[in-house]
Design a protein around this nucleic acid. Structure first.
Length: 457
RNA sequence: GAAGGUGUAGCUCAGUUGGUUAGAGCGCUAGAUUGUGGUUCUUGAGGUCGUGGGUUCGAUCCCCAUCACUUUCCCCA
């Protein structure tokens, strides 16, 4: 009999107990903040109809969707010409379901399907894994979690400020202090495109200037040239890259650049309103900057866009989002504006690990392990165990009758802070010896004393 | 889609300019210590050197192919 070597698909991960404790610290923090701001949780299925996802993420995005092969004889009734002609035409015929690629599109589908039950404005949060058929790299997986919070059904800029407040609170709770919330506005980018004579062509402009911090002004210029921008158009753009000062000063310079462009000025107005609301709420501004090079890849954003970067650490953005005006329109529900935020748990994990910001995990652990020498001690332990648990003390009884040494090793490896020892002497005295595994000290308590000492934890 | 890197013990890695018996640290086993973990000392187990083929008297090493993992670019969280 030959055994097979087990493995998991690349880009996927197992999470052991230590990792789950740390992940849950992040997830619970985010969830607590979402709840506090009045967001309600929903979940959607792992798989969606392929047609729901197709075409929502651009042409490249379609390739990155994990498709699920139809059940049964999926080749029945297939026009074999497709196989030779084009696999893209064959795919929808043999796969009608696919794994979700993000949480936003399924949410849009959810809103449209449940529009009669939903009370608008609808604030929902969702924490679930998503899948991408990408080649894995550092900080990039084929299965990963997203934590999204969105408000749909209102244009109010209060939503934007609440998102900023939530980011601030999450980072404060995670003890990350040195970070930047970059904000920008798609309408400002539209206005810039228009001002240099490229009306309506801001998407290629966005893709290029999004890379500004990576490839520099020269790299961006080169890319724009390749995309058909003329030298004079790029020349006009240059002042944008050289704006200096704080957010308000940049806005003043930007106003001059945009001149009377109505769309661009609408964007500026909204940014100013957001800052004004934040000021009324006495919010902390320090971490917010207007970054005109922020564009964000996804094409459905139409208003304010955000991204959060942890400073002084080699890591891409850990959070991002923005306002979208027409996400539900494609499913037949127009004029629903929404704004959302997404936290990247996996990247936050790496950041906290690197900055050593995870709290000590001992409190989540078993507090007391009951050890014993013989069958009699085991029975004594069986009596103690439920009483400890009734007092809300996380505890366990060693299951096998092994040497005491072995039982201590178990406690040590599991980082259980206290070991209860039940031997002949203890049973005669009707007390329990408790050894503190950290300090090595040992004392005897009655069960009552033990419960009193430990239940306050 | 393009270009690199790496596959040797459970883990992290040495090594052999091609030679008989492939090593270390950590981990694991057992003991020193029959009522005590972590520290210390001693002991033992554990390998088709990724897979298939080629060259050779002989390949873990050289050549070819293949698979897996990994990094960068593109794109994204």
């Amino acid at each position: 009999m030959s055994s097979q070597k087990p493995s998991i698909p690349r880009g996927t991960r197992d999470f052991g107990p230590e990792k789950m404790i740390k992940r849950n610290f992040i997830l619970n923090t985010i969830q607590t903040v979402f709840k506090k701001f009045g967001f309600l949780q929903i979940e959607t299925p792992s798989m969606e109809q392929l047609s729901v996802l197709s075409g929502k993420y651009g042409e490249e995005g379609d390739q990155l969707i994990f498709k699920i092969l139809n059940s049964g004889n999926y080749l029945e009734n297939i026009n074999t010409d497709f196989i030779i002609e084009n696999h893209k035409k064959l795919t929808p015929q043999i796969a009608e379901k696919a794994l979700r690629y993000d949480l936003t599109v399924p949410f849009a589908r959810f809103v449209v399907m449940n529009k009669n039950e939903i009370t608008f404005p609808f604030k929902r949060y969702q924490i679930q894994p998503v899948w991408r058929a990408d080649k894995p790299q550092k900080g990039r997986y084929r299965e990963f979690y997203q934590c999204d919070a969105d408000v749909v059904g209102t244009n109010s800029l209060l939503c934007e400020t609440e998102i900023i407040s939530m980011i601030t609170e999450v980072f404060q709770k995670l003890n990350i202090n040195d970070y930047t919330i970059k904000i920008n506005h798609r309408k400002i980018l539209q206005g810039i495109a228009s001002a240099i004579g490229k009306d309506g062509q801001e998407s290629s402009l966005c893709v290029a200037i999004d890379k500004l911090d990576k490839i520099g002004i020269q790299g961006v210029s080169k890319e724009l040239l390749e995309k058909g921008y003329t030298d004079s158009e790029i020349e006009k753009l240059l002042p944008i890259f050289n704006l200096k000062g704080n957010t308000l000063e940049i806005i003043e310079q930007l106003k001059i650049f945009l001149d009377e462009n109505p769309i661009g000025n609408k964007g500026i107005e909204e940014i100013l309103s957001i800052l004004d609301i934040l000021e009324s709420m006495n919010a902390n501004f320090q971490n917010i900057t207007l970054d005109l090079s922020l564009a964000r890849g996804l094409s459905y954003y139409t208003g304010t866009i955000f991204e959060v970067k942890v400073n002084n650490i080699q890591m891409g953005s850990v959070s991002g989002g923005g306002r979208y005006d027409n996400l539900t329109e494609i499913f037949g529900l127009p004029n629903i504006s929404g704004v959302g935020i997404s936290f990247g748990v996996d990247r936050l994990y790496d950041v906290l690990e690197e900055l050593q910001l995870f709290p000590s995990s001992s409190e989540q652990n078993t507090q007391i392990l009951i050890t014993y020498f013989d069958q009699e001690g085991f029975r004594y332990g069986l009596n103690i165990l439920p009483q400890l648990r009734a007092a809300n003390i996380s505890s366990e009884l060693y299951p096998d009758s092994s040497k005491i040494k072995k039982q201590f090793e178990y406690a040590d490896k599991k980082k259980i802070p206290y070991v209860a020892i039940i031997g002949e002497e203890e049973m005669i005295e009707n007390k329990i010896s408790i050894k503190n595994m950290l300090t090595g000290t040992q004392e005897r308590y009655t069960l009552q004393e033990l419960i009193l000492n430990f239940s306050r934890n």
